[in-house]
Design a protein around this nucleic acid. Structure first.
Lengths: 156, 156
DNA sequence: GTCAATTTACTCGGATAGAGTGTGTCCGAGTGGCGAAGG
DNA sequence: CCTTCGCCACTCGGACACACTCTATCCGAGTAAATTGAC
C-alpha cells in the first residue's frame, strides 16, 4: 500500500482538530517534517475525491470538505491508493487448450473467495470514520488536540 | 497484489485434483499457457513456505505438501506476496518539533485502525482452505476435476 | 541374465535483464491581499 | 479620508526525473532413469 496513505490520514486528523481554517501544504508537511511537494500530491488526490476542499492563493490551503463523522478511512484509502481491488482475476482459466467455454458463465471461485476477503477489509475501513480515530486518540492522549491547534496557530 | 497469486491458487487446485503425483512446472504452465520459468518462481516460493513439496530430476516436479483441507488461502497469499502488512506505520507522529515523547508508549490509533481492517482480511483468507474452493468449483462445474485429471494424464 | 558404472535427459533453484508503478521534485497558472496613486 | 488600480507574494495543480519492485528469462547444480558393458 502507498505510504502516502499514512500521511493523508494523519493530515486529515490534524485538519479536523484545526477546524474550518484552511492550512497550506507547507504547514501540514512541516508538522511531521515531510517533503511538502509530495504531500501536496496526496492532498490533491483527497481534494479530487471530495474529502478535502482546496483554496488557491494567499491564505489558501486545504480544509476538510465534510465533518469528520462523514469521512471514512475507506474514503481516504480509496482516494490515495485507488479503489481497484488488490486481487484482480485475469481469467486464466479461459486460456489454454483445456479451457471449457461452458464454464465461463459461472463465476471464478478463486476470484469470489478473494473478493470476499477484500470486502471484509473494505467493510472494516468503511466502518471507521476520521471522527472515530480522533476519539481514540483523545482517549489515550487527551493533550494532543490542543497541542496540535496551538502549534498550527503559533506558526500561522 | 502480485499477479502470481492467481496462478499459484489455480495451480494448487490442479495439483489437489491430480493427487499425489508430482507435476513439473512446464506442464502446470502449459495448462494455462503461462510463462513456465516465471510460474516456477511462484512455485518455488510455495515450496519454501511448505505449501508444496518439490522433487528434482526426471519424473520430478511439485505436489501438495499437505492435504488441501490444511492449506488456507492465507498460506498461499503469504507465500507469494509476503506476510508483511500492506499498511505499515512509520511513526511519523514522532517526527517534527511538535512530537511528544510521552505519547510514544501509546499505540498509534491510525495504525490500530488499519491493522484491524487488515486482520479482518487475513481472517477471511485463513478461513477458506483450498479444499473449500475445490468444493465450490465442483458444485458449479462438476466436470472440471475429471477434465483436469484427464488432461494431465494425457500429456504426461 | 544380472549387476554395476556411466551417460543422459530432465527438473528445480537461483542469478540475471527489462517494464511498470510508486517516490520525490520542480515550475507555471491562478488568486487574494497589499500598497500606492488619485479624487 | 475613501476609492480604485496595479503589483506582488502565496498557493494549488500538473508536468517532469529517479528508484524500487514486479515481471520475465536464462543457465547451472543436482538427480533419477536409461543405457551400456562386464561378469
Amino acid at each position: 500500500m502507498n505510504e502516502g496513505v499514512e500521511w493523508a490520514v494523519h493530515s486529515c486528523l490534524n485538519l479536523a482538530w484545526i477546524g474550518e481554517r484552511t492550512v497550506p501544504t507547507a504547514r501540514l508537511a512541516a508538522f511531521y517534517e515531510l517533503p511538502a511537494a509530495y504531500l501536496n500530491k496526496q492532498l490533491q488526490a483527497l481534494a479530487r475525491a471530495d474529502v478535502l476542499a482546496s483554496v488557491s492563493g494567499p491564505r489558501g490551503g486545504f480544509r476538510l470538505a465534510r465533518p469528520p463523522e462523514k469521512i471514512t478511512l475507506m474514503d481516504v484509502v480509496a482516494a490515495i491508493d485507488g479503489d481497484e481491488p488488490a486481487f484482480r482475476c485475469t481469467e486464466i482459466r479461459q486460456r489454454g487448450s483445456a479451457s471449457d467455454p461452458a464454464t465461463y458463465s459461472k463465476p471464478c471461485a478463486i476470484d469470489a473467495a478473494m473478493r470476499k476477503a477484500e470486502l471484509a477489509w473494505r467493510r472494516e475501513l468503511a466502518g471507521q470514520t476520521v471522527a472515530d480515530v480522533m476519539a481514540t486518540v483523545e482517549r489515550s492522549n487527551p493533550g494532543v488536540p490542543d497541542k496540535v491547534r496551538r502549534w498550527f496557530d503559533d506558526t500561522r
